[in-house]
Structures are given as structure tokens and as C-alpha cells.
Amino acid sequence: MMLQIRNLHASVGGMEILRGLDLDVRAGEVHAIMGPNGSGKSTLAQVLVGRETYDVTGEVLYEGRNLLAMSPEQRAVEGVFLAFQYPVEIPGVGNLYFIRTALNMMRKQRGLDELDAMDFLALAKERMKFVEMDQSFMNRSVNTGFSGGETKRNEILQMAVLEPKLAILDETDSGLDIDALRIVANGVNALRSKERALLVITHYQRLLNYIVPDRVHVMANGRIVRSGDKHLALELEKNGYADFEQDTAGGARSAAGVTS
């Protein structure tokens, strides 16, 4: 099992956002997490990459090891990656330099040789093709003055270069037009492999036409309230999330009962 989440709780300032979440993800699988705004999808993603804002209890095993005990940078070195819903701007830090620094710091931690500027450029150029980016992106400051679509593509480019084992995509599709959506999806599909797992968080079913998931989970009020195969996404598209929001508000389903 690549990722095992058991009874995960996260709160901030006494307000509970994740309220006993369970999830299992195997290597090679693509899981989609869908749910209404405010259900805690981004919080789950942030907790998995080590955001310190939240008080977290429960258990998260990544390749059998305690993920919650690792620092954010350690998790990255171990192969966990998040494509942020809202990537930050970093004025004054060149994109190329940033991605090379990230890759080399990870390689060093993994006991691999660092890539020199030439080798890195060759790799970056190849991966830029996945997301149809041109080199002018690389000379600009990270995400500074990028359009919404450009920041999302830049997240996928980082993923393509850093080659994580567990990649979490947080609403990478939001705000993208159909062309950008196709580019992002192609970038993601190019990385699908037996060794990798993907956790695709999305509000809409649309993206799942391009990235076909093995499992679909519905999240509401900080829990996974229903799981199924790709057909569940279509059902949600038709009926919306209203049912689920009522379900958990009434406490009708137990977390354990729906994740099997």
C-alpha cells in the first residue's frame, strides 16, 4: 500500500476541518476526490505535504512509514508532491533556477549526483514539451505575472521534472479553458505508471474525462462519505453534491462504512 490514512483529524483554531478521514491508495492507481467547496479537500492535500498550520491527529502511513512525523522537505525527498490549488509567486527567483535547485536538493538527499546546468536544461526542455511550455517561462520569476493557466502548467512541469511517487493535484483543472485542460491532462497522463499513484482533487467531473480514475471518492464535511468507480463521478455531475452535504450533517453514514 502506498498511502494509508486512518481516522485523520485536522483542525485550526479549534475548528475541525477533517473529521475522521480514511483512505487507501495503491501504487499505480489514480484516485479522484470530489466534493463541494469547503468540504476539506485542500486541507487534506496540505496536511499530506506537511502544512504546519493545522493540529493533526490520526495516522498516515506512506510506504509503511509515518508520514506525519516527516518535515515537508523530507516528504518531498521521499516522493510526495502537491500541485497547489493556489501556487505562490516568488519574485526575484528564476523559474529555471528554482526547479533545478529543487531537483538537485532532492537528488543530493537521495544520494544521487546533482545535475549540472547543461544536463538540467536538457531534461527541463524535454519535460516542458509535456505541458507545451516554451522556454521564456523558465527565465521569468516563479509564477510572477503568470496567468492562471500558466501557474497550473508550471505545477505540472515541476511534477514532470521531480518525478514524485505520490502526486496530489489540487483543483489543477479549475479556471482552465478546454485547451489548457487537455494540456494539463496530457502532462499528467504522461506520468502515469505502475510505480506512481495520483490523488486528483477536483470539483468538476470534466477533468476525469481526460484523466480516468480507478476510484472516485466523495468528500463532505471533512470525511469521505462515498467511494466508487469512475461512474460515481458521472452520477455526481448529474445530481450535484446536495445529498452528501445533508448526509454528513445528519451523521447518517459512518466513515468506516464508506471507504471499503
Binding site: 505535504v49 506537511g50 502544512r51 504546519e52 518535515s71 515537508p72 522537505e73 516528504r75 518531498a76 525527498v77 508532491f81 502537491l82 497547489f84 501556487p87 505562490v88 509567486e89 516568488i90 528554482f98 526547479i99 535547485t101 529543487a102 531537483l103 536538493m105 532532492m106 538527499q109 515541476q158 521531480l162
Partner: peptide
């Protein structure tokens, strides 16, 4: 900006770096 520091850390760059 601590948001930015966190973003860099999720890319494997240590806090000090």
C-alpha cells in the same frame, strides 16, 4: 513570506535553504 517558504519546502528545499 512563510507561504512561500512552505511552497519551497514542499519542493524538497530545506527550511534554511
Amino acid at each position: 513570506n512563510e507561504e512561500v517558504v512552505f511552497y519551497l519546502r514542499t519542493r524538497g528545499i530545506s527550511q534554511i535553504a
